[in-house]
Amino acid sequence: MSDIVRESLSALMDGEASELELRRILSADQKAVRSEWAELHRGQDLLKGNDQRFVGWDISSRVMAEIENDQYAANSTSWKQVFSGLAIAASVATVVVVGSMGSSIFGGAAPKVADNNGLSGRVYPAQASPAVGGVAVNAQAQGSPAGLLLNDDAEARKRFEAYLRKHTDRAAFNNGQGMVSYARVVSQESK
């Protein structure tokens, strides 16, 4: 996706998109647009401190997929159409209701970040959401932006310790804590 389309999407989200920008979005690759749209909302939710659990759930593509599967209904009688439409809506709604119940039952604290991010009005979050089969379902992505965690790799751990010491030489004078910062290094080395 080009930066121009991304910029237009961001503008649309802020309610500032022009007609030209709308046309640009409509003519862009729809799959990319959908995932970028989800990304932008995720970034905004994160900054507002909203619940992050379900931001990865792309309902739009599921609804579209269901409608695709239900093409035969188009030629049948109207009550069938109404019924299948209701069924789709109900199934999606169930997922959402059950999902949000889960969120309050397990009550994880939502990341709380102030509205004013102090950077810029438009936000481009860092992670790409892994889209599986056109349906972006990855509520966990937010939890592990690290990708691979190498904590068990002995070589990587050795390097980490060496870097941490060098880093602490520089950090101790800048983080307002002073020499106490070296506890981070020493506690690790004496293990």
Partner: peptide, 15 residues
Amino acid sequence: IIEGGMRRGASVSYT
């Protein structure tokens, strides 16, 4: 070198 992160306490590294 494998790309990835390390974490301990508040300290992290990413290679």
